[in-house]
Design a protein around this nucleic acid. Sequence first.
DNA 1: TCTACTTACGAACACCGTTCGTGTCAAGGT
DNA 2: ACCTTGACACGAACGGTGTTCGTAAGTAGA
Lengths: 245, 245
Amino acid sequence: MAEKSWQAGPLRVRVMTRDEPPRERLTRDRIVDVALDQMAEQGYDAVSMRTVARALGTGPASLYAHVANKDELDQLVIDRIASLVELPEPDADTWRDQVRQLIRDMLAAYRAHPGSARAALATIPTGEGGLRVAEAMMAVLITGGVPPQAAAWFCDLAALYVSAIAAEESIWVERAKAAAAAGEPIDEQAMVERVRRVFASLPASAYPMLAGHAEAMTSGDGEERFEFGLDVLLAGLEAVAARMH
Amino acid sequence: MAEKSWQAGPLRVRVMTRDEPPRERLTRDRIVDVALDQMAEQGYDAVSMRTVARALGTGPASLYAHVANKDELDQLVIDRIASLVELPEPDADTWRDQVRQLIRDMLAAYRAHPGSARAALATIPTGEGGLRVAEAMMAVLITGGVPPQAAAWFCDLAALYVSAIAAEESIWVERAKAAAAAGEPIDEQAMVERVRRVFASLPASAYPMLAGHAEAMTSGDGEERFEFGLDVLLAGLEAVAARMH
DNA sequence: TCTACTTACGAACACCGTTCGTGTCAAGGT
DNA sequence: ACCTTGACACGAACGGTGTTCGTAAGTAGA
């Protein structure tokens, strides 16, 4: 207990206060912690200034002393997520696989916090976590003999690719969730099936290519398509790098 | 004039009404028209159910008779935008350039409606406009001798790439606009300069690669980087296609 | 002319990000 | 031991969002 006393007009006031409403002080880090947790559990759309504040036992206004914006908070969260991906030790023999794996790990990190990628699209990584990943990617590429300019731009391209894939995926998931909440629960399989049917039933007169290759257009799940993109990016990188000698 | 009469209790009521309060009937198409215009002039964020309704001289509730969602409206707008891009006549000799040009044109179409790409990321093109460009892209690729499976997945990849680029760009623009509205007007040049300074001042001990290649990391404007990505995608496509023989 | 049905829409709900002004509280100077 | 200062906390409110509800208006069929 702590004692406190003061003069209020003619009165002498003396009060005992419990010295632990152990409400810790607000911090950028604590705010980001909470936002990250909420994103992992409920997805990007469920994270708002209000929900974060509520989880911290306060109102939304309190956050603005530590964070300029929702935008800034988003960037901090993205940076934190980037700081969670495991980095490879550059090796000249396996650099191709290392690039692939690094990109896969970034995707996994985004997937663990659904919707986060939507905010990542906006970011040029200038925080600690992002720089860390960029540094590792550059190291692997340079070790692999990729010319610096190509390596630098490829970092950009890879980051764009992975966040676009993650963002697209999350929107899809979100939509399925919304459909499930209201009306018939539409699972992923059903949505794929519907798209497939659209392509299959296209009039061959107007869309000879799409109708003729409907099978190819709709084959492959997300993983297969992601790996295809990876193949294209890496093969393209080598070709372009060679051209830059 | 139109005459109308009815019995109201003991009274015979007779009324003349102007037969043209020329408020045309609401239509999906008219709604999409307005949304498209607003997006072209003010960007994605300025388009809301309310602003569209206001421009049509009504309230937001009226739109829901013709459009299920903001989401659906967005998709309709995207489809309309896609229907505006010019399509090439497939030619086996110049197919590479045709692919490039088609992708460039898609980017231009998105750019003409800033922010639209953020909605495009979500879409598997199943509307008329989207199918149209997918058909054209497939035709060019097949004419170029790309195996159907590779061509199909590449369509996906190209669409993802271009919408990701456009979305990233629009977010950047949006942010610059917001910064300009409140406080110092920060032009694009200044933002680039700041990023450059961050990279240049990175401690070489912690970030040897980024510090060592700061020049490469920050060189090139958006256009150059976009073209680099195009190079990578096309070179990669050819390599992967050859592998699929 | 009466009825059934589609279309239109004002009002309201539950959110959102952000700002304002006030309240609280610990540290420093006197 | 008091007073002052300044940083932090935060309730309330503003203006915006997407969406729903119940009712009005208009159209077409019987």
